[in-house]
Design a protein around this nucleic acid. Structure first.
Lengths: 344, 344
DNA sequence: CACGCTCTTGCAAGCGCTTGCATCGATGAT
DNA sequence: ATCATCGATGCAAGCGCTTGCAAGAGCGTG
């Protein structure tokens, strides 16, 4: 009871009456082991409750059976879902997941300086975290496969959605409802290097909105592009700013549901009705979007994670298949927060 | 540029003109190294960009610099916050976090059978995951410190809140508002072994509600105890069931905000106003509780995580200080979802 | 019956770091 | 000047597993 030393390969070997080398091969399913022998070894291992020492194995092979996952936030809906998806496929494949939560943490510098993943992981997955040039180089210097979700890093595979297309579809929806004064809540400046997602959604917004203005022969309202930092509080503030504008939007497109939630709240507090007075459209299809009747662009978050996980596995098994960036589909989900423009 | 072999201890030793042993000691800040030598070694290491091989170090010392964190869900608010808190303090301490997301996953059995953390971690943290007897034994068999949040496992340290006290406070609030027909939304049966949290909140509910009934000289309504599985959808259903009761509650206490959200939604759909027709009280102080004007019991989730992280660190540095379970405080946060009973 | 194959198995040299013990000066005491 | 001491270093034996290579066994063939 208690301090019993864990069994080692040799113990199994002795019990099975073979050499350690054979045990190693037998247990890993390598060829070149007679069936009878393998059976005996497996039985012996089971009897002793033998479990390999990852450290020793890793030292000998150079592989760790672990991948590092770097995220900006674990506690935001989008990321936690992503992680959940990734984790599932990795665990199924018997590989462990080392989590690093960077965010706007001051520890980020220290992380990249120390690079605790070095020699600790067989691959790295970066979730929608914009990397600086240096950071990317450091990661690539790890000399293991790199895959990213939501950002495209030269040197790594990436998975994502068609942000631009989805955002255009969203905007078109508002336009079809008759809205022409459409505002946008996205990332606050400065947009971190490489953070393509907010940029693309913004570009799409601008494209559609500016076209609208051109048709109507008027100038786009610059104040319509606001930043909400992808948080509820940020969305709240952004909406506040929009309400302060001389020219008020009749519809708002938020680049994330969380920001849309914030906007809803500001609107409610201001005594404005949604969607009668202003339509609000989000992006994500957050769990609570349904609850709040928020129309939004649904993106298949868990699938993104699973897909990334599978890609990772493929890379681990040496697959050097140059995959072009994987793009998953999105879908406009209409609920109660968007409605046709009412006569002013 | 590419395939350069990572440097090893020997390389540093050569550059610094000392032995590998000295480098090892110098770099780890062990005593018995002359200051001048240490400086030289550190410089050499820096120049070569040397980074220790965790595998080798781990093989030699038996320590891994990693802790395993086991959670039932990563993508639920409470857990993601917890993880975030834990991760921060661990990363600050330079130790890595191996994440295992079990949930009601069928892979759970496989996880405990294979026990991928074995020999991979220096400690294990279990987040509000009720363990079966066997599972707990397996974890304890890992022979590393075990700490838990939200559940008390014999053999491990635990951190949590006073669920019973907090729930009683919540219930009292409803009572003070004049409510006497109070329903509860909690865990659905069967409550997993060891999952004390829902049990305690239920017990508190029952205690207060039954006392009320006794005062009024009537039987408690058994149908008032519903299960919502701690999800929005579950809460929705539970509220639906409550509305179907002949005797309808005037207030509902949900053991989690997510379930309360679901309840809100069912109420809204049923055309009932909150809080005029029914008061709703949650538990957690979810990020969106504010947005939804939900009165709730706030628990310091990130602090719980940080606290657990620190406890873990203490245990890792050999601290055998028998800490009694750490209990953090909670606070009733009143918003718009609870109001005095209106005449029926 | 000898020879050459193929299939199993074992040997032993690592993988890169840690650590108990021995060594070697330098320093202080006698 | 001599010897005990103590701090700074180096030696070398692991830690537990993997793997190239060699050796042995069993077989079919000429």
């Amino acid at each position: 009871m208690g301090q019993e030393m864990p069994e080692k390969l040799d113990d199994v070997a002795r019990l099975a009456g073979v050499s350690a080398a054979t045990v190693s091969r037998a247990l890993r399913g390598l060829p070149g082991v007679a069936d009878r022998t393998r059976t005996r070894v497996v039985a012996a291992a089971a009897e002793l409750g033998y479990a390999i020492s990852p450290a020793a194995s890793s030292l000998a092979t150079g592989r760790t059976g672990t991948v590092g996952v770097i995220v900006p936030y674990v506690d935001r809906w989008y990321f936690s879902r992503l992680i959940s998806g990734v984790e599932r496929v990795l665990r199924d494949a018997g590989i462990s997941l080392l989590l690093y939560n960077l965010g706007d943490d001051p520890g980020r510098g220290r992380f990249f300086a120390g690079l605790p993943l070095r020699r600790r992981v067989d691959a790295v997955l970066v979730l929608s975290l914009p990397l600086t040039e240096v950071e990317r180089e450091l990661l690539l210097g790890l000399d293991v496969p790199l895959v990213t979700i939501g950002t495209e890093e030269p040197g790594g595979d990436s998975i994502g959605i068609d942000d631009h297309g989805a955002a255009v579809t969203a905007m078109r929806h508002l336009v079809q409802l008759g809205h022409r004064e459409i505002a946008f809540i996205g990332e606050s400046d400065p947009i971190p290097l490489g953070f393509t997602t907010p940029l693309r959604r913004l570009a799409a917004y601008r494209e559609v909105y500016h076209a609208l203005c051109r048709e109507d022969g008027r100038e786009p309202e610059a104040g319509f592009e606001t930043g909400g930092g992808f948080t509820v509080a940020g969305g709240e503030r952004a909406m506040g700013a929009l309400l302060g504008l001389p020219r008020r939007p009749t519809a708002v497109f938020a680049a994330s549901d969380e920001m849309a939630f914030g906007a809803l709240r500001t609107l409610r507090r201001a005594g404005l009705r949604v969607p009668e007075d202003v339509s609000v459209l989000g992006f994500d299809n957050h769990d609570l979007a349904d609850l709040l009747e928020l129309s939004t662009v649904a993106q298949p978050v868990p699938e993104l994670g699973e897909r990334a996980g599978r890609l990772l596995l493929a890379r681990l098994s040496g697959g050097k298949i140059a995959t072009s960036p994987s793009i998953l589909g999105t879908q406009l989900v209409l609920r109660g927060s968007t409605a046709p423009m009412t006569g002013r």
